[in-house]
């Protein structure tokens, strides 16, 4: 069981916030960006030729002698795509399990708000996945699906995200749960998602082994995903300091890319308790409220 009942009860109080309102189907709790038929009045606007006469506020016209059209917002559901990196590197430090639990929590929040939630594990590309649906039944299906995800494969963020975007899915909120550590880069994949009008949130999951490796003496360094030539190294304080400098630069580059492209980016060490991560860290960034 990824999440216990007590934790789910606590999640009841939260709501997933989306800063950029995506298009969606009527029925959700998110406001659609375009005016439409709904019970909820939003604003007035000057009449312009072509507007539906039925929405002219004749009382205002009687008082102010101006033709104003009543604008209503229609509430829409939001497709939420949970993209979970299941590559072998996510096994290090329990990043995958942490990501699956986080995905389950976010999916629960979405489904609670009557949104459609789908889950797509990926490594070098997205294969299969749980298509987005709404409703209480989807909660159990989502949890069961996430529990069955196993690690394996090499990360190719560009390829996977590009492929996902190319499938012409309905744009929505895309939560990317990954360590984002890949020599092939991520920029092209993310750009494709933005181009396809996805709202992207990156939750970067990093293990303590990634952030603060301990001195191991002489080691034969191997890539967790069997990428690159293994080599031997004296992993001492000096080497670790050099590595941390390189990692810091890499993370900064990612952060700047996200900032420039208005992508919500949050770095989550997996040593952070899940509750703190959701209620405090995601709350502070207004991803949930």
């Amino acid at each position: 069981m990824l999440l216990d009942e007590q934790f789910l009860k606590r999640l009841e109080r939260l709501r997933l916030m989306v800063k950029t309102q995506p298009r969606g189907r009527p029925g959700g709790t998110h406001h659609a960006p375009r005016a439409g038929m709904s019970l909820e009045f939003t604003d007035y606007k000057e009449y312009s030729p072509g507007d539906d006469f039925r929405y002219v506020d004749w009382k205002v016209y009687g008082r102010l002698d101006r033709l104003l059209i009543k604008v209503f917002t229609r509430e829409q559901d939001l497709p939420i795509y949970l993209l979970i990196d299941k590559s072998s590197s996510m096994e290090i430090g329990g990043k995958l399990l942490y990501g699956l639990r986080l995905a389950a929590a976010l999916g629960y929040l979405g489904l609670k708000e009557l949104d459609r939630v789908g889950a797509y594990p990926f490594a070098s590309r997205v294969e299969g996945g749980l298509p987005p649906h709404s409703g209480p039944r989807q909660i159990f299906q989502l949890f069961r699906y996430l529990e069955g995800v196993r690690p394996g494969g090499r990360t190719d963020l560009d390829g996977a995200l590009e492929g996902f975007a190319a499938q012409r899915r309905e744009p929505g909120l895309l939560v990317l749960l990954s360590d984002m550590l890949t020599p092939q880069g991520y920029e092209r994949g993310l750009s494709h998602l933005l181009y396809r009008r996805f709202t992207v949130i990156i939750l970067q999951l990093l293990a303590s082994e990634d952030l603060e490796p301990r001195p191991q003496g002489a080691v034969r360094l191997e890539d967790a995903e069997e990428g690159g030539r293994p080599f031997e190294l004296e992993m001492d304080e000096r080497a670790i300091r050099a590595y941390q400098e390189l990692l810091r630069a890499y993370l900064q580059s990612l952060e700047q890319f996200c900032l420039a492209h208005k992508i919500e980016y949050l770095r989550l060490p997996v040593t952070t308790p899940l509750e703190s991560a959701i209620f405090e860290m995601l709350g502070e960034r207004r991803v949930v409220r």
């Binding site: 590197s89 290090i92 360590d179 550590l181 020599p183 293990a207 082994e209 990634d210 490796p213 191991q216 003496g217 002489a218 080691v219 034969r220 360094l221 191997e222 890539d223 967790a224 990428g227 690159g228 293994p230 080599f231 031997e232 190294l233 004296e234 992993m235 001492d236 000096r238 080497a239 050099a242 590595y243 390189l246 990692l247 890499y250």
Partner: peptide, 28 residues
């Protein structure tokens, strides 16, 4: 030396040369 798996080998590769020199006297 004993194998050690890392998530981001590409970051470590940049400090490989220095590590090699240090390996002349490794402690296993």
């Amino acid at each position: 030396a004993e194998p050690y798996r890392v998530s981001a080998l590409f970051l470590w590769q940049e400090i490989e040369a220095r590590g090699r020199r240090a390996l002349l006297f490794v402690r296993r």
